[in-house]
Simulated assay, not measured.
Amino acid sequence: MDFTGKNVLITGASRGIGKATAMAFAKKGAKVGVNYKNNDEAAQMALQELPGEGHHLFKRDISQKEETKALIDDFIKVYGQLDVLVNNAGISIFHELDHVDFDHWTHAWEKTFETNLFAAANLCYWGTKAMMKSGGGHIVNVSSRGSFRGEPTKPAYGASKAALNAMSQSLAKKLAPHHIYVGVVAPGFTETEMAQETLTPAERENLLRESPFKRMARPEEVAHAILFLASEGAAYSSGTIIDVNGASYLR
């Protein structure tokens, strides 16, 4: 896979899967736009680690709908055209129905959908407008194993990712005549900085038992699937959802 001369925008790219994806694209010759919300230090570090030249930071809170248009506008001003959009940014909030009050419950649903679904939908809208002007492109949305198996402690998360899957497949049908190809990568639990910071030893042990590999996914493994769906040879795979969960959940 060669992305020389391609301009790639990745949301939530200062850490974890987003950062690994930015690194993978940059190694293949792409110019990468690193979107992030507020962690300036992590974003600067991620930018400095990218091989090659022409990479830029784009600080925008994409949970705010007006910021999605601004992000695409900013990107086009720098690069001229958008070839690949990776909607990676996401959040998850614990809200077990039998343990939280109604305010917490509704807050979790609203905030989760703002980032995980509405932001991705809005970026697909504005990104598609830009791609149509330049003759096409690729969109890869990062979903989750939880969209299929259920998330009892975070139902809004599972629901938002299931909706992201459905939206992606609808857009794959709609946008194919415009030479815009839409795919989804659905990781299982991934060994990111956030996982290291938040998982208890018992939680980690339970997660390791779920896969016959006895480990979690590495961010680079998820990035590999994203690059495939963004590659020229993957056009006929538009609408595909690739599971990267170490056979921990099969469907």
Rank of each mutant, 00 (worst) to 15 (best):
F3G: 06
G12T: 10
R15K: 15
G18T: 07
K19E: 06
M23E: 15
F25W: 03
F25H: 01
K28P: 01
K28N: 11
G29H: 02
G33Q: 09
N35W: 02
D40I: 10
D40L: 13
A46W: 04
G52H: 05
G52C: 04
H56M: 06
L57C: 06
F58N: 00
K59D: 02
K59M: 11
R60K: 15
I62R: 09
S63H: 06
S63I: 07
Q64L: 12
K65Y: 02
E66W: 02
E67A: 14
T68S: 08
I72P: 02
D73S: 13
F75E: 10
I76D: 09
G80M: 07
G80K: 09
Q81C: 11
V86H: 12
N87E: 04
A89F: 00
G90V: 11
S92K: 13
I93T: 13
E96K: 14
H99I: 01
F102E: 14
D103G: 09
A108E: 07
A108H: 05
W109N: 04
K111Y: 02
K111M: 12
E114F: 02
T115K: 04
A120Y: 04
Y125A: 08
A130M: 05
S134H: 09
G137Q: 08
I139H: 05
G146E: 12
S147H: 08
S147F: 05
R149L: 13
E151I: 08
T153M: 13
Y157F: 13
G158M: 04
A159R: 00
S168G: 07
S170G: 07
K173C: 00
L175Q: 03
P177F: 13
H178V: 00
I180H: 11
V182E: 04
G183A: 14
V185G: 05
P187W: 03
G188M: 01
E191T: 04
T192I: 10
M194D: 15
E197H: 06
A202G: 01
L208A: 02
S211D: 02
R218V: 01
R218E: 15
V222N: 03
A223D: 01
A223Q: 01
H224Q: 14
L229Q: 06
S231E: 10
A234S: 15
A234I: 02
T240K: 07
V244Y: 09
R251C: 01
